[in-house]
Design a protein around this nucleic acid. Structure first.
Lengths: 194, 194
DNA sequence: GTCTATATTTGGATAGAC
DNA sequence: GTCTATCCAAATATAGAC
């Protein structure tokens, strides 16, 4: 592993565990096994380092999600595919999720344009639009649905991080619960048709 | 307003706007119009100040929610009552929501026992238990449902904080979306009965 | 209880040898 | 590109007069 990567890994892990305040350049260097000054050969500032980590996380999750994603599939399949792949990606690297959460509450986030990775947001918005057009999803603001999409993912993984274990059924019903929040209830669908 | 309150207000507002790192004791004192040293007559440390603010917020929201709450009412009414009152409380003081979010990503949160205010969690858990027993809500972990409960509240108010406006209908359907995530779908209810 | 002044520590960042 | 040594600014907290 390159020295630059070691620094990123160390910073990621420290922020995930102790927050931004706890991730000092001194501790990052120590954890990475490099000198403090060396950090600045690879990143022009601590903020730049954090930003690079954030972008890498988002890009990796996006790539994992897009693998084998079929935009022509039925809406429920598309929803489930994305949800499960996001879940799996963060589950494989729990520190990445924690880092993202902490980063999002930082002033750096605003420079990053508000709500995370643009490409991921676009995929979810497209799914929403298609579902709304088909009369299957609620006609709600995309950022609202996005937050309902991620809520159970975050809750599941944070609990898992504290020692809890979830079996396959529980994960699936969490995904279904998110789906239900998107879907027009049968009652509403009947109203629409009449 | 007492000087102690002025310090709390100033800290609340600064954290909400600029995060924990941006809320230095110097800026807090300046914003509150007191001397930096005076902060320490009221709070033994900066952490103690932040903790006091967090607890006050949670207690106030809890009180607002409990007003006229009828635990014997139908499940849907109870859900809506709590949701709308939490929403209204944070809407009246948006800084309080932002503070809470930032605080939650802080090491201080762990000393506070994990997921926020115990009393509020108890009310939501009770509601969940009653609904599960009645076969109306999904039998899911309480913290999962809690996160689905709060997700649209946070999303709505963060958007509003950025200039967006929501009308009454949009707020109501956000509440309904959260409810749908809790509710067993009609399909599932039929399965249970058969 | 509030101010002014200051002690103390620690943070991010740089200089320069190797 | 990596290290050692160091600078400078800023942050928390305290001392002590009023």
């Amino acid at each position: 592993m390159t020295s630059k990567d070691k620094v990123q890994r160390a910073a990621l892990s420290l922020v995930a565990r102790d927050g931004f305040a706890g991730a000092t350049t001194a501790r990052i260097a120590a954890e990475a096994g490099v000198a403090e000054g060396s950090i600045y050969r690879h990143f022009k500032s601590k903020d730049a380092l954090m930003l690079a980590i954030y972008r890498r996380i988002k890009a990796e999750v996006y790539m994992a999600v897009m693998e084998e994603y079929d935009e022509a599939a039925p809406l429920h399949d598309r929803f489930t595919h994305i949800w499960r792949h996001v879940f799996a990606a963060y589950r494989a690297d729990p520190d990445a999720l924690l880092f993202g959460q902490k980063f999002a509450e930082t002033p750096l986030m605003e420079m990053e344009g508000g709500q995370g990775h643009k490409e991921m947001a676009r995929v979810l918005t497209k799914l929403r639009d298609d579902g709304v057009a088909a009369g299957v999803f609620k006609n709600m603001a995309a950022d609202l649905l996005t937050s309902l999409f991620y809520a159970p993912i975050v809750a599941l993984l944070r609990a898992e991080n504290s020692g809890r274990h979830w079996d396959e059924d529980e994960i699936l019903s969490a995904c279904e619960a998110a789906y239900d929040s998107w879907a027009l209830s049968e009652r509403h669908q009947r109203q629409q048709k009449s």
